[in-house]
Nucleic acid binder design. Structure first.
Lengths: 218, 218
DNA sequence: ATTACTAGTAGACGAGTAA
DNA sequence: TTTACTCGTCTACTAGTAA
């Protein structure tokens, strides 16, 4: 039942409908789905109904884009495939070294966090985070990573301030053990914060704008 | 049409049917597919008919395994997902440093090959290959890589000997540019040969048995 | 327990066609 | 050209049941 939806969604995603609106007629979609224009039109209506896609139907062709709910469905299926084909659940994210050790550094230094990090990740984090601006093509991978379980670092209250849960994902940068940390309640951003036992920037002699590969465990 | 097959195959693969036979009754498969025992039984018969699976039906439960043809279908779909979610078409392969610079080294030194490598890959290969025994879980990834296009290094005839076509896949080992080379006509093996401008083993101080990550461009 | 037949029904599809 | 209705057909499913 759900199956016919993922098939159509995947096709739309391949046409570019995941990141952007894509202009595709029901006839064209029918071709991609190997079905008639009529059936493709019906499928589009069903996808709309189920809120997997949105669309602006203009005078000539319609603009289709996949909703977050639709993207969800595709990611689920993608992760199944990863499980099947890549036993090593790793993913590479490319990013540019960015400014900003302020905020994150302050948070991660709180004993309430750092003790758990020591416990769960096996290292005491350097007082400060390493920030990376994800390259646009890789921003979607963050969602995939967030769908994997990660390591929960529980929040706490200290001196009347509330520190929320943080999820850590083990990673490596050029063989340096580290972890991506993401507040449990946060919006998607194109910047990630990375903690490490060492000062990554200094240890690897990196400067702002340098391109870095992060290999993330899923 | 093909869609219902991949759905069932994916489920079977998740149960372990890609690498091994998996014991699953039609009722159990029905549960996994969210359909009745009767329909699952029918689906199994259709998959058998289409040669996507094989099975031994014992007294109690049946043993199902996915055929190469079935694996093919799954890989195709998997690559579609990779295209959607990972614009950077890279894959990590883990392997252990292995002996054997003999054969491959001799071949790759032939000017007929090395000139083309210089031309297409941008480096003159070191006279010898770096061999890696792929860890068992990653052997399947080789198929995925071989399904991507790679760079064709044309064969030639020299002094009466025929040297066949070789396909090169750009890769990196700890930031060292290199390439996996695979004879066009070869059986699947668990060892890969890697060429590089430098002596990888020496440059990275590697010894037999060391675990190495290869990041392959698809 | 199994697997898998038959029969009846719901739903998916394409042809024709309207807007 | 579009999108999307109706309607007839054919396929995919489940229930019942046999082996």
């Amino acid at each position: 039942m759900e199956e016919k939806f993922t098939f159509a969604l995947r096709r739309i995603a391949l046409l570019g409908g995941l990141r952007d609106s894509v202009t595709v007629s029901s006839r064209e979609l029918g071709e991609a789905l190997e079905m008639s224009q009529q059936s493709a039109s019906k499928r589009i209506l069903e996808l709309l109904e189920a809120k997997y896609i949105e669309r602006d139907v203009g005078a000539r062709k319609q603009q289709i884009r996949i909703t977050p709910k639709g993207a969800e469905l595709l990611k689920k299926e993608y992760l199944e495939y990863r499980k099947v084909f890549e036993n090593t659940d790793k993913m590479i994210i490319h990013g540019k070294v960015a400014q900003g050790m302020g905020e994150g550094g302050y948070y991660i230094c709180q004993p309430g966090y750092s003790d758990q990090i020591k416990e769960q990740l096996g290292f005491t984090p350097f007082e400060g985070t390493f920030n990376l601006d994800i390259v646009p093509e890789d921003v979607g991978k963050l969602d995939v990573i967030r769908k994997s379980k990660g390591i929960m670092i529980n929040g706490f209250v200290s001196e009347g301030r509330t520190f929320g849960n943080v999820i850590a994902y083990k990673a490596k940068i050029k063989n340096l053990e580290c972890a991506i940390v993401v507040p449990e309640r946060s919006h998607y951003r194109e910047t990630i914060e990375i903690i490490c036992q060492y000062h990554i920037r200094r240890t690897l002699s990196l400067s702002d704008g340098d391109l870095v590969d992060v290999i993330v465990d899923l």
